[in-house]
Nucleic acid binder design. Structure first.
Lengths: 123, 123
DNA sequence: AATCCATGTTTACATGCGTAATTGTTCGCG
DNA sequence: CGCGAACAATTACGCATGTAAACATGGATT
């Protein structure tokens, strides 16, 4: 089962730092998302069921730790989009952003550097 | 309201060629997706409700045409992913694929070309 | 011990989605 | 003109999601 968007928000907190208690998570996302305690608890439970996080008892509360690595999640999500919209190829995606003028100077510089590195590896 | 994945499959057919009848759409996606007639009709109706397609009567059936441009859809989807996963910046996304060794030779060549063009535009 | 508080667990409920069966409508044909 | 076929529109239904209220439970407090 896939991780939903709301669930991903919670994962994000845990990816930044773990383990964390439900309370800490609420403190971090509640205000921004307008979520109550119950909401965060539910999301955590769904994530538990999906084996995306792990809970370890600590006195009367639990400490939550991600089991799913962020890298894995990012991988799935971006591959999905790439396959659905760009025939699985990266260049068309970048071209798309380029056409939309969504490449910042920094992006361009970094891309250049990246290509250069690939070049060098190629000895 | 956003366009769901199943709905996007239908849109894809219409983006390839429009207008089309429900029957033609079914013929094109039914086998691959394992969808019946009713399924396609429902999806078309939901797309109508979302103003993503338009239906024009043609005798006893309808001809469906996209109202939402593919470009627009791609834009929304990819911006969403970029924002959620890569802080809205393109270079990190490409770096991600690079690390995963998902850049084909062709990708690299095209990226190089793209950067070169950007360079040239820059007078 | 009875109570309260902090936490987690269960249940709820509206909405959207995937998938389709059912029902309604309009032509063309006998 | 009435009927059946071809379409479309409506309704259905189970499951996921977003959001949360209600309930349970195990210490801490009086």
């Amino acid at each position: 089962m896939a991780i939903s968007e709301a669930e991903a928000v919670v994962m994000d907190v845990l990816w930044r730092e773990a383990p964390r208690t439900a309370e800490e998570i609420l403190a971090e996302v509640g205000p921004a998302q307008g979520w109550q305690e119950g909401t965060v608890k539910s999301l955590l439970n769904r994530l538990l069921k999906k084996k995306a996080v792990q809970a370890e008892r600590d006195g009367r509360r639990y400490l939550y730790t991600p089991l799913l690595a962020r890298e894995q999640y990012v991988q799935q999500e971006s591959k999905g989009l790439l396959d659905r919209l760009f025939g699985g190829r990266v260049a068309p995606l970048v071209a798309h952003f380029s056409e939309q003028r969504k490449l910042s100077k920094k992006d361009i510089a970094e891309l250049r550097k990246l290509l250069k590195e690939l070049d060098d590896e190629q000895h």
